[in-house]
Nucleic acid binder design. Sequence first.
DNA 1: TATGATTCACCAGTCTGATAGGTGGCAAGG
DNA 2: CCTTGCCACCTATCAGACTGGTGAATCATA
Lengths: 226, 226
Amino acid sequence: MMKKIQKIHVHEQVSQEIQNYIREFNLQEGDRLPSVEEMTRMFGVGRSSLREALRYLETVEIVRVENGKGIFVREIDTFRFTGKVKVDNEKKFLLSILEVRRALEGKAVELAAKRITQKEIIDLEHCLEEYSRLKESDQDTSMIDLSFHRLIIKSSSNPILESVLQSISGLYVKFFNEPLGEKRLFDETYPFHNTMFQAIAKHDVKNALVEFNKLMDCVEDLIKTY
Amino acid sequence: MMKKIQKIHVHEQVSQEIQNYIREFNLQEGDRLPSVEEMTRMFGVGRSSLREALRYLETVEIVRVENGKGIFVREIDTFRFTGKVKVDNEKKFLLSILEVRRALEGKAVELAAKRITQKEIIDLEHCLEEYSRLKESDQDTSMIDLSFHRLIIKSSSNPILESVLQSISGLYVKFFNEPLGEKRLFDETYPFHNTMFQAIAKHDVKNALVEFNKLMDCVEDLIKTY
DNA sequence: TATGATTCACCAGTCTGATAGGTGGCAAGG
DNA sequence: CCTTGCCACCTATCAGACTGGTGAATCATA
């Protein structure tokens, strides 16, 4: 059996070359790269291949291409992570999401209870007030609910945790809020937002986690009886 | 002051159109899209714009372009998540990674202890044997260590957890294994791999977590005294 | 002299024709 | 039955032409 020969496209090579160029000349965030014309000469490739390489580098957020100005280095020393999951609507899938959320947000709650500042406590309190206001006037609370959880995550003072949670939040927003009768979800979990906040504000890690887990249990039950 | 008009590039529009096309005709994974020529006619754009759109869709893994064959739908019903973190080498940063790992892998250990199958226990056992074999002959154990943790994650039977952990594993591989004197790290954590395995194999969730946390504490200490 | 309009050099955005090269089906020839 | 060569169809890449954005230098005017 012949070994499959791996073709390397020009635009892939060029994309590598450009990245090498950035490293080699130690370009920093915001620095300008040579113009397209120059780079076609530098690398000896056609315009279209170079542009395709740029399109790739642009979508992975390594460069920024600005019409009339030039091509700029976007971010350096940034670790990018990507992942994917096959999506369906079965219970098992929803419960899997919940397990991940429980792990990550549970950690966030734990850390928030340890590290939250006075100012963040006040922000959270305002958020909860708004929450109850909306709730009493029977308006949609999904947005404010999201803000509440986001504030807690922010209070954990862990940018990596924040970034990871942010990246998968689309998953549970999409699959918890939409499919389950939203109203019921927010109604049943609402009390725990308060109790959890109280515990966090008192830096009571243990109780904060207890209340958080009650909240998650509540969602879990809802999924199971769905 | 004029309001800034948001220019939408042709290739962005085309990329949208192609995605609409996929939805509209309900194309499934592996289905072929019209050829480039046809699509330029369909959308009334030039080849280069279309190709740039394809390059974008290819990097976000929506289509696959094969020379001589055509353009194919890659994945449908797949949720993609991406995130990024500014990287540096300070203690605080390393500890932040560790907190996230503790949350996610801790959950994986917990679930694995609950759900691990007999076959997976055997696989893990073989992995540990290989681990100790390499260790005794003083060879590099970083790879087998990775395999060990990956097996546990697999045993958690949660594909989402697996995917999220996988996506950020590059972070701790890069920043734990490399900067810290690898040898010391693997030497000091080695015993806990065994004890953790024993607990998991006995479906002893509590002790599995205890041992896992010992392992993490060990890494944490190493970082702190680094 | 100060300010506002104009011009111009430079740059990315897009289209198009030409050529190269990969892929698979099919028919002629062994 | 298998090989070989041909062909239709497809992507890959290049190069040239034209469009339109951007900012700085320049020029005209109050």
